[in-house]
Design a protein around this nucleic acid. Structure first.
Lengths: 337, 337
DNA sequence: TCCTGGCACTCCGTGGTCTTAAGTGCTAAT
DNA sequence: ATTAGCACTTAAGACCACGGAGTGCCAGGA
């Protein structure tokens, strides 16, 4: 049904349409690509492709443009991820070297991705649930306030203030800190609740109130922050890519962290690329956009995802190459430090 | 030169243009506002206003629109800040109550401002330099790594990892922690460098390397983070307000933190409003925008600024009211907790 | 059986002309 | 100092004609 030449035609249509942003006709196609056949033949193939829903024409007597289904086929079978150029590789290194903490790594990554792909970049913070406790610190802030700082092996820090305590004793805090670290250090965050379950009961009476308060805040910070943090960059690029209509909706969707996280999708293997095209993604406002995302992490463990969102009419091979390269590089940095 | 009626005409022009987004002509003006004179008279006043540069016409035979200078006069002399409605006040309270830490306060504030003004909101994190040290914590992360956490009275937390140390001893860290807190607790961040100047020299030989490393990182974190953190929200609103052209430039400018901070301007008294109109602000891409900003802080001390950016053609009284109200409310929250 | 050249048809975009509506500036009268 | 009246300007919309790009289809050729 779809012989090789039809596929070649589809590929050519996608490539031309992506670069010119105009419906592509049979004649132009025959000229620009060496398909070895006449425009008339191409036209015949086109009607076949159109019947199968891979391409469409905006109106009679216009050229064809790929449909979501067409892009899907292109991505799955007709294209290969384009490796980055040397200059681009160097750009990644210079851009990301010298980042001191996790915040800065994430911030730079988002800029880098946006610049590399000239699209909107999204980077998710490494997930809490996939990491383990490095250290829990308690800091007395005053007679009835204590600050809890949770540090994970991925370098992430969560802080909370516990308020309305009565009579916080320096020694009580010291005791609790020790007990807490003994119980949780090295534990996966998932396992922390179980690990601290009976600490409150075991605590000496004078520490009981403090212990209970701190534990409840600790547990809360584990659950609540499951709504994870995401950073966005390169929105200015939206304006470039003929996004005049519906831009409002896109911007709106991009402001919702929940949406962004769902867009990045379920975590797969690190550096495995996911592409979601047009209406495949679940949000109204993003009907005209595609998302290319990849996981990153430490070693073979996926901690979070990153990606870009651009128009369905995007340079998939190039974008996929950039996303994959950045994900890999970040993973190597995280593993290294 | 500018009698009362001419001012009234200017005010009417600004108000009409802001609400309709179309050049306003003499006839419409005479109908919609009860100025008590005929269109012809208004026309005469208009040429006077135009000669003085307060209004302009896009082309012959079009209505007039205010110039930057016209808006400036309007803001300075012809308008009063509009207090919020009861519903809006309630919205502020419900929106901001229940924020647990500084991050959340800032995040919610930015959303609130964007929603209230239907424009782009900017909120700056409370400045480091205006606060004092609450506590410095050191956490050994491994044989040659230590994490430093700096906590300020405004609830802000800065963390840094110090790497490539050799042979970190638990007791050394304990000693340094104690010394450090003794020297810095309660100090203004500005004064910290002086306060720790000779700690390294005084340290026992075995702690010297550690002390020096930690101090250098501490000082660095004070200086470097002077490029302060800013949060942005409501960019989707850009699309609504006829910003089709130049939107690219605006988005680009808004992505640069440095730009945002400079836009917010120098800190004045808390809750003092600053308005920067059109070409008054220093950035090319923001020629068509105005910025309304105010300081906020604890008591009468300004810790940071917040504001909104919208088209020069904006509802100044309403926007100013919202910005002022939010700034005050945040200040009261910060002072209270 | 598959490819190709030719041809009639469709539709969009462009540019021209015309008309209308809104608004101005000027002048003369109040 | 204000107003009414009038001639003038301009943008925006409607309409039309036309050229170009592209299509679908058919008949002839490898």
């Amino acid at each position: 049904m779809l012989d090789d030449r039809k596929l070649a035609v589809l590929r050519a249509i996608v490539e031309d349409y992506v670069s010119t942003n105009e419906p592509v006709g049979s004649k132009a196609l025959a000229e620009r690509h060496s398909l070895g056949v006449s425009p008339a033949t191409i036209r015949n193939d086109m009607v076949a492709l159109e019947e199968d829903g891979y391409i469409a024409q905006p109106h009679t007597s216009a050229g064809r443009i790929p449909t979501d289904k067409g892009y899907r086929l292109f991505v799955d079978r007709l294209s290969t991820v384009k490796p980055l150029s040397g200059a681009e590789r160097r750009a990644i290194e210079t851009f990301l070297s010298g980042a001191v903490d996790l915040d800065e790594i994430v911030a730079r990554t988002v800029r880098l991705l946006a610049q590399l792909t000239r699209q909107v970049a999204i980077v998710q913070y490494p997930s809490l649930t996939r990491s383990y406790v490095q250290h829990v610190e308690l800091v007395p802030l005053g007679p009835n306030r204590v600050m809890m700082v949770l540090i994970t092996n991925t370098g992430r820090v969560e802080q909370r203030v516990i308020d309305h305590l009565e009579g916080v004793a320096e020694e009580g805090v010291d005791r609790l800190r020790q007990v807490l670290n003994q119980a949780t250090a090295g534990q996966w965050l998932n396992d922390v609740p179980a690990a601290v379950a009976d600490l409150a009961a075991q605590a000496p009476p004078e520490d009981r109130q403090l212990t209970a308060s701190v534990l409840s805040v600790l547990l809360e910070s584990l659950v609540e922050r499951h709504e994870e943090k995401v950073v966005l960059g390169g929105t200015a690029n939206l304006a470039r890519m003929g996004f005049t209509a519906g831009l409002r909706d896109v911007l709106e969707a991009l402001e919702e962290n929940v949406v962004l996280i769902r867009l990045l999708g379920e975590a797969g293997d690190p550096s495995m690329l996911t592409v979601s095209i047009g209406a495949e993604n679940p949000y109204e406002g993003l009907r005209g956009t595609s998302i290319v995302s990849a996981g990153y992490g430490m070693g073979d463990q996926t901690l979070a995802k990153l990606g870009v969102v651009g128009p369905t009419r995007m340079d998939y091979p190039g974008t996929m190459g950039a996303v994959r390269a950045v994900a890999r590089y970040i993973s190597s940095i995280l593993a290294g430090q």
